[in-house]
Design a protein around this nucleic acid. Sequence first.
DNA 1: ATAAATTTGTTCGTATGTATA
DNA 2: CTATACATACGAACAAATTTA
Lengths: 253, 253
Amino acid sequence: MSVFSGRPAYLQIADDLRSQILEGALQADDKLPSEPALMDDYGVSRIVVRQALDVLRAEGLIVKQQGRGSFVRALVPPTKRVLGHLYNERPEGSPFAAVTSAGGQRPEWDYQSRKTAASKVIADRLGIAPGDPVMRTSYRFLADDEPVMLSTSFEPLAITGGTSIEQPESGTVTGVVPRFDQIGLHITHVKEDVNGRAARPYEAETLQVPQGVPVLVIERTYYVEDQPVETADIVVSSARYVLSYRLEIPPRT
Amino acid sequence: MSVFSGRPAYLQIADDLRSQILEGALQADDKLPSEPALMDDYGVSRIVVRQALDVLRAEGLIVKQQGRGSFVRALVPPTKRVLGHLYNERPEGSPFAAVTSAGGQRPEWDYQSRKTAASKVIADRLGIAPGDPVMRTSYRFLADDEPVMLSTSFEPLAITGGTSIEQPESGTVTGVVPRFDQIGLHITHVKEDVNGRAARPYEAETLQVPQGVPVLVIERTYYVEDQPVETADIVVSSARYVLSYRLEIPPRT
DNA sequence: ATAAATTTGTTCGTATGTATA
DNA sequence: CTATACATACGAACAAATTTA
């Protein structure tokens, strides 16, 4: 196997290895040839081999482990989770706990809350003024002791300040919808904006995933009749999480 | 500014530049210092500077353009689109056309259809046997002449073969729901699995985005009462597309 | 339990090609 | 046309993690 000119060598090598993975010649958890072996195979320098492997890593097709090698990543995420439509079925309780329990795993989370001033972005999402006081809570969600999701939520203190739910995790009731029900505000709908990017170092460390793996970022905002009452940034590894939902099509008229 | 030992230099530089972007010192579309300038600033070699920039590119924070420089990417995607809940509001017509028109842009698409045999993955999703005949159609969707979305769809010929909708784009009716209505099959719901990863070379080229940018991949399957009738892989640049939807919370009982 | 070998991670220097200003 | 800036690619060395002997 050798490279022809015209297309960068590292892309040709990435193409070749990608085909082998996609066509099944290299299967999940298989070890790829070592970098020196690939240098020999393709007759290129180490930097070219590493660039090719970096391409495949960014595509989520392989993982590299120092001292061990590069391995084909399972194409189907091992723990497939469902977000979204669960709200309709079980509005009570925390969606995370419900989904995790349903998958036969033990849900846990820890968190840190503190009062702070709303940034411009957060103020926009909550319909308040920049600098207004908000309660900021950072969550780390674990399934069977493995961190799978990060979340940072913001609630305007103009709404929750002085109430029994000012501290998000101090009561016995979990889940945003039941919590707001406690102060007489029933959440009517949720909006979510989903985007994808590579994990930032802090996220990679906290989620215990290799650097640069793709993550899904969900901007979620809870509303009571067009009034935002809570907004959160949620980060999940796309290797362990699939955002899955079901949409009903109305009957033909 | 210099680097201390203990943490890789390229990560320290990425951290520093990331802070400047996130804190607003470097704003959207601002040009970052050139690679030689960064080499001077931090006292490192070119390879380290490039690794740092590659980290930020994978995170979607910057774009690099050969011959021009590296630029801060707009944090809020410029054309925010909505998928999903539109099905409930306007089941008629193509969702893409509806969304694009609603955003004041002109929708267009081209495509290629061919009969082929179902791969194992596609057969699984369609509930048929591997090797069964399917109609495969690759779409390229454009908004105002700019490619924004790729889609590859598969329909079992056991269902559509010999009917008026065997060729997905030969009739006058667009959109999967209305098309299947034409042969008396009313689609009852849609399932979507969303994941994120870096664009593959073919996708980057077709979508006219720089290599390695994060994309969202949506696996969408249409059902008629638990019978899959169409499945598609949809790829969108997360720079230009946000998957957005709204979930209703039922009233308190 | 240790040492050696293997494998990826980080970093330097250097050179040439290609796109843009 | 020239200078600038990023893209690709060679060679080399040492560090860190893991596996093997």
